[in-house]
Design a protein around this nucleic acid. Structure first.
Lengths: 189, 189
DNA sequence: ACTTTTGTACTGACTGGTCAGTTCTAAAGA
DNA sequence: TCTTTAGAACTGACCAGTCAGTACAAAAGT
């Protein structure tokens, strides 16, 4: 088995367990067991529990950012905004455990590097789309773009987790429609 | 010192430490030390670390729900919605540690009772306001009210934490204005 | 062909420390 | 008197990290 395969197996086991129990409640023994690997292998590959989690976060955040970038297309900037929201919902439908880990650990000072990466790369996609909307004249110039980007990201993250936890059978498209309505002010009509 | 006072001191110490480090990384010894209380006192008052945290969550969620209910006033339902958002921002300005704990532990199955309470009481205020808006004809009848309530709550929660962590000097009113713009669709104009 | 060496990936028992929870005595308050 | 708190010593389970050793393959030496 190649080193890369081992690392992927450990990542998969770790993200599931940490999503369920949180970082410090999750033991390296449990991660190793779920990954089908000896405990020593985890330390051989990552050096420490903390380094394992850092590497895991950075890897998955890179994935998320890529998925959002790939979604950010549309005739108008507001179409692109909808598309990014849908892309985020779809991503977390597949990687639901990451959503819970992000929510729980996103503001912990321990993982600063990963958080910076999240803000620059993932939130950056929202900020770019909002800036494009300003350039196209679809959005007021004085909107606080960083706050708005965080707001939309947090909104989608929360709803994605709620859907996964409470209504796993509801189609993503329905949830997306509700969020699009909220964002476009189509509620008040 | 009365028992109630002791409990409040322990609550205050616990919420701060748990917000910083997470539940399982926080030791009872540390809580007792920060509270200026003997370790035995914590167990005398709460019985266990878990019971302490349950009581803490329920107490604070009750507070939050009360604050939201008190805010939910306005000539129109949409005014009331804005007011609740502002109320939530203000509450988390004062109880910022709770915001981070809620975000981190909200979807953990371990604290089901508290989570049910949060959904019924706090999210319920948003749902009520949205239902009132439907009754007043300000909102489309087919909007998914539960999802929308969760979305707004999660949005405000995320932004409140970001503000506290990154821009503590920014006035709440500015953040509120941005969120109100988003919710009323005043972005596209 | 054959042995020996080198490097890489992995193993799992073991260690040293940590922490929730207990148990005691003594004291302070109401 | 009855309740509450302080403080300290203790237990036993649990856990991150270590380390000596295994397995195996690909050079390197002869």
């Amino acid at each position: 088995m190649s080193r890369a395969e081992t690392r992927q197996k450990v990542f998969a086991a770790a993200i599931d367990l940490i999503a369920e129990q949180g970082y410090s409640a999750t033991t390296v023994d449990a991660i190793a067991e779920r990954a089908g690997v000896a405990k020593g292998t985890v330390f051989y590959n990552f050096g420490s529990k903390e380094a394992l989690f850092s590497a895991l976060l950075e890897h998955r955040i890179g994935y998320l950012a890529q998925a959002l970038r790939d979604s950010a297309v549309g005739a108008t900037a507001l179409d692109a905004l909808d598309a990014v929201v849908l892309g985020q919902l779809r991503f977390f439908e597949e990687y639901g455990a990451l959503a819970r880990v992000l929510l729980a650990e996103m503001w912990r000072t321990a993982w600063q590097e990963a958080i910076v990466q999240l803000r620059e790369q993932a939130l950056g996609v929202y900020a770019d789309v909002l800036r494009r909307a300003v350039a196209e004249g679809q959005i007021r110039e004085d909107l606080d773009i960083d706050t708005a980007a965080t707001a939309v990201f947090g909104m989608v993250l929360t709803v994605a987790i709620e859907r996964q936890a409470l209504y796993p059978d509801r189609p993503v498209s329905e949830v997306h429609a509700t969020l699009a309505d909220l964002l476009h002010g189509r509620i008040s009509r």
